[in-house]
């Protein structure tokens, strides 16, 4: 049942624009119900700030049910906070104890410049998808959906990878700011399906090349997968590496010759 969590010390990163240096600002939450979500706790704080005639803390959020991928936040050194397999919006105050200190920082990566306070720009992800994260299929010309059977295990594996919400926690958690889990997930989703075969290697090459312009490299720490709200497996990175190699070496005129 409902309990109160009291005397929380929040250290929130405030940064007035991309060029500002930024600093931690300390606020004390005297008490809040443990049913409140983490973002609702920030809502409460923001209303208080407005009451004090101060600017509200800027942070990205939208669906608040863990699927849109808009919310971010580094909470006590962990992307999306201490709860495994969930986004910040699905984190509740029952995960914290009285007198806890909670440090809140924005995602940090060269590819994710800070816009203001806790809000960052994750457009680099979109650039990667634009470069090849799709199956070319103009509206109207699609054959009957049941024409190509997809073995259930393949469909399931593609779905596992497709569950990615594009939140950027993998990049934020990675000690190298690498986006391999994000790119690997999209490639795995599309490259496993029969529909995705025609562009498979072109896609792998284009997306990896674009990723390279923005992000660091994978050193197999596994932090990305641990931070991933959808718990996407590191296997997707291996598949990406394999398809990228094939993209470079395969005779693409004779792709059917495996």
């Amino acid at each position: 049942m409902t309990h109160l969590v009291s005397n929380l010390t929040l250290k929130v990163w405030r940064q007035n624009g991309p060029a500002d240096k930024g600093k931690f600002e300390t606020h004390v939450i005297e008490s809040i119900t443990d049913e409140a979500s983490f973002l609702e706790m920030l809502d409460v704080l923001n209303e208080r700030l407005i009451g004090e005639n101060k600017e509200a803390i800027v942070f990205d959020h939208d669906c608040r049910e863990g699927i849109c991928g808009t919310c971010s936040l580094m909470i006590n050194g962990q992307a999306h906070g201490p709860q495994r397999g969930s986004t910040t919006c699905q984190l509740h105050m029952r995960s914290f104890k009285d007198d806890d200190t909670i440090v809140i920082e924005p995602w940090r990566a060269n590819a994710f410049p800070i816009i203001k306070d806790l809000m960052v720009d994750r457009a680099a992800f979109d650039r990667i998808v634009e470069s090849g994260g799709f199956i070319t299929s103009p509206t109207g010309g699609a054959p009957d959906a049941n024409l190509i059977p997809v073995p259930k295990p393949v469909a399931d594996a593609a779905m596992d990878a497709a569950a990615c919400i594009g939140c950027g926690a993998c990049v934020a958690a990675c000690p190298n700011s690498a986006a391999n889990l994000f790119v690997g997930a999209k490639l795995t989703h599309l490259n496993l399906l029969p529909q995705g075969q025609a562009e498979r290697y072109k896609r792998a090459e284009a997306m990896v090349d674009t990723m390279d312009e923005h992000f660091g490299s994978c050193t197999n720490h596994g932090e990305c997968s641990a931070a991933c709200p959808k718990e996407i497996s590191l296997d997707v990175i291996a598949l990406m590496n394999k398809d990228y190699r094939s993209a470079k070496f395969k005779n693409r005129k004779q792709l059917s010759r495996k």
Partner: peptide
């Protein structure tokens, strides 16, 4: 009916049965 065709062609991983059909 066209929507399903279109979305499958785009790679939406709809649930399948063991025969591989939707």
């Amino acid at each position: 009916v066209n929507i399903i065709d279109q979305m499958v062609a785009q790679g939406v991983p709809f649930a399948r049965d063991y025969g591989g059909l939707l």
